[in-house]
C-alpha cells in the first residue's frame, strides 16, 4: 500500500488548511464581538501546525519513513493582538470611559490568510491528483486499454 502514502500526506495537508480556513472564518465572524459567551474578551486565533514526523532529514529520503508523514495541527492559540478600543458611549458593553473593546482582528491580514490557505489547499489537491495520475498511468503498463 505504498502508493497510498502520497494520498495520506496530501490529505493531512488539506486537513491542516481546512482548520486554518475555519479559524480565519472564526476571526472574521467575530470582528465585532465584544466578548465570548463566557464573558472574556475575544482574541483572534491562529492555527499552529507542524510536520508530523520529528525524524532527522535523512530519514525523509527513505520511502519507509513516509508512511506516517504529513502535517498536523497541534493547537489553536490566541494571537497576541491588542483589542481595538472604539469610543461608543452609548454601547451597553462600553467601559467607564465610554470605550468598547473590539477584538484586534486585522481584516486585511485575514483576507490574505484566506487566499494563501486556499492556494495551499489547491497545491495539496494538485499533488494528490499527480499521485493519482501516476498510479493510473502505471496501470496502463503493457496493456492495450
Amino acid at each position: 500500500m505504498n502508493y497510498l502514502s502520497a494520498f495520506k500526506i496530501s490529505a493531512s495537508g488539506m486537513t491542516v488548511e481546512k482548520a486554518r480556513l475555519d479559524v480565519t472564518a472564526m476571526n472574521l465572524a467575530n470582528v465585532h464581538s465584544t466578548r465570548t459567551a463566557d464573558g472574556r474578551a475575544f482574541v483572534p486565533m491562529q492555527v499552529i501546525s507542524v510536520a508530523k514526523q520529528g525524524a532527522p532529514f535523512a530519514s525523509y529520503l527513505s520511502a519507509a519513513s513516509l508512511h506516517g508523514a504529513g502535517a498536523q495541527v497541534v493547537g489553536v492559540r490566541e494571537r497576541n493582538a491588542a483589542p481595538r478600543m472604539v469610543y461608543e458611549p452609548g454601547h451597553p458593553e462600553a467601559d467607564g470611559k465610554g470605550f468598547v473593546a473590539y477584538p484586534g482582528v486585522d481584516p486585511v491580514g485575514e483576507m490574505v490568510n484566506l487566499i494563501s490557505t486556499m492556494r495551499a489547499y489547491e497545491a495539496n489537491v494538485a499533488a494528490l491528483n499527480a499521485a493519482k495520475t501516476m498510479a493510473l498511468k502505471a496501470l496502463e503498463l503493457g496493456g492495450n486499454t
Binding site: F7, A11, V125, L128, A135, T145
Partner: peptide, 22 residues
C-alpha cells in the same frame, strides 16, 4: 467534516478496483 476525505477514499477505491481489473 472534511469533504476531501470522502473524495480521497473514492479515489483509492477506484485505483484499487482498476488495479484488480488490470
Amino acid at each position: 467534516d472534511n469533504v476531501h476525505h470522502v473524495m480521497i477514499a473514492l479515489d483509492q477505491a477506484r485505483i484499487s478496483f482498476q488495479l484488480l481489473t488490470q
